[in-house]
C-alpha cells in the first residue's frame, strides 16, 4: 500500500469527520434540548455560511445598508485574524438567527406533540432555503479563506491547511459543548430532555433551555457549513448552491450511529462514518463496476443499518425505558 496515498486519505477522512462532528453536535444539542430532529439544519447551516460570505466577500452586514467594520482592507485576501474575527461574528449572527427561529416557531410549541415541532422545522427548511438560493444566485459566494487551497507537505503527502483548520474547529466546538454540558445549563438541559414538565416543576426555565439549545445548535451548524466550504472540500472555498443544501442529510447516519442524544457518540460516529466513506471510496474504486457508481455515498447508511440491527439505540444512545 502506498503510504503517501494512505496518509492523504486518512487526513481527508478525518477532516470530513470533523465536519460531520460539528454538524452532528448541532443536531444533538437541539435534540437534547428540545427533543426535535431539526429538518431545517441544512438551510440554517447554509444560511450561516452565507452570512460569512456576505461579511467577508461583500464586506457588508446582512440586511443592513452599512458595511462590515470587521472586514479587512479592501481588495486583499483577508488576514487570518480578520477572517477569524468575522467567523466569530458570523457565529454570533447564526446564534441570533437560532434564537429568533426558536422564539417565533418552537417556543409556542412547548408541551405540544414532538412531531408537530418536527414538521415546523420542515416548514422552516422550505421557508429559508429560497433565501439561500437567491443569495447564491448568479454570483459565486467566496468564503475568503486566507489560506485558500494551500497545503503542507509532510513526507511527500500533501496535507491541506483547510483540513487541519476543520479539525481544530471541531476540537474547539467539541470542547465548548463538553464544558457547556458540565455547566448548570447543561444539567438543566438534560433535565428538560428527560421530562419537560418535571423540569418545569423543579423551577427550570424550559423556555431558556430551548433558546440556548437552538442558539448553540444553529451556530454549530453554521460552523460546519463554513468549515465544509473551505477548499479542497467539494465547494472549493465558496458557498455552493449545489453541495451545501444536502450537507445536513449526510450527517443523519452519524447521529444515529452514535445515538441521537449522545455527544460522545457524535464524535465516534463522525469519525467512523467518515473513515468508512472515504476509505471505501479510495480503496474500492477499482470495483466500481460491481458496486455501482457513487457507491461510497451509501456506505454511511450501510454502516448505520448494521449498527442499528445490533444496537437499536446506536452506540451511545439512551435506550427508551419501555413500560406498560
Amino acid at each position: 500500500m502506498d503510504v503517501t496515498t494512505f496518509i492523504q486519505t486518512l487526513v481527508k477522512a478525518l477532516a470530513l469527520g470533523a465536519v460531520y462532528i460539528m454538524m452532528g453536535l448541532g443536531f444533538v444539542i437541539i435534540f437534547k434540548g428540545t427533543q426535535v430532529l431539526n429538518f431545517a439544519a441544512s438551510a440554517l447551516s447554509m444560511a450561516g455560511a452565507m452570512f460569512m460570505s456576505i461579511l467577508i466577500a461583500d464586506r457588508g452586514l446582512p440586511f443592513l445598508p452599512f458595511g462590515n467594520p470587521l472586514a479587512g482592507p479592501e481588495g486583499e485576501t483577508p488576514s487570518i485574524g480578520v477572517w477569524l474575527s468575522n467567523l466569530i461574528f458570523t457565529l454570533i449572527i447564526a446564534a441570533i438567527l437560532g434564537l429568533v427561529v426558536e422564539r417565533l416557531t418552537i417556543r409556542p410549541m412547548i408541551g405540544q406533540p414532538l412531531f408537530a415541532m418536527a414538521v415546523i422545522t420542515l416548514g422552516l427548511e422550505f421557508a429559508i432555503r429560497p433565501f439561500n438560493i437567491d443569495a447564491t444566485a448568479l454570483e459565486g459566494r467566496s468564503l475568503g479563506v486566507p489560506w485558500g487551497a494551500e497545503a503542507w507537505t509532510v513526507a511527500d503527502a500533501l496535507i491541506p491547511k483547510s483540513y487541519v483548520a476543520a479539525a481544530i474547529m471541531a476540537l474547539i466546538a467539541g470542547l465548548v459543548v463538553f464544558f457547556f454540558y458540565r455547566s448548570r445549563f447543561g444539567v438543566a438541559m438534560r433535565a428538560v430532555a428527560f421530562d419537560q414538565e418535571a423540569a418545569m416543576a423543579q423551577g427550570i426555565n424550559v423556555g431558556r433551555v430551548f433558546a440556548i439549545a437552538w442558539a448553540l445548535g444553529v451556530a454549530l451548524a453554521a460552523l460546519a457549513g463554513i468549515a465544509y466550504g473551505m477548499a479542497p472540500f467539494p465547494p472549493g472555498g465558496s458557498v455552493s448552491q449545489e453541495i451545501h443544501p444536502v450537507l445536513a442529510f449526510r450527517v443523519l447516519p452519524v447521529i444515529v450511529l452514535g445515538g441521537l442524544d449522545s455527544v460522545i457518540g457524535v464524535i465516534y460516529g463522525g469519525v467512523m462514518i467518515a473513515l468508512a466513506e472515504v476509505f471505501a471510496g479510495q480503496y474500492l474504486s477499482q470495483y466500481n463496476s460491481i458496486l455501482g457508481s457513487g457507491y461510497s455515498t451509501i456506505v454511511p447508511y450501510l454502516v448505520m443499518l448494521i449498527v442499528l440491527v445490533v444496537r437499536p439505540y446506536g452506540l451511545f444512545g439512551t435506550p427508551e425505558i419501555r413500560r406498560v
Partner: peptide, 12 residues
C-alpha cells in the same frame, strides 16, 4: 416556496 413553508409553520 417561502410562503408555502411559512404556511406550514403557522399552521402547526
Amino acid at each position: 416556496f417561502v410562503i408555502f413553508g411559512v404556511l406550514i409553520v403557522l399552521f402547526m
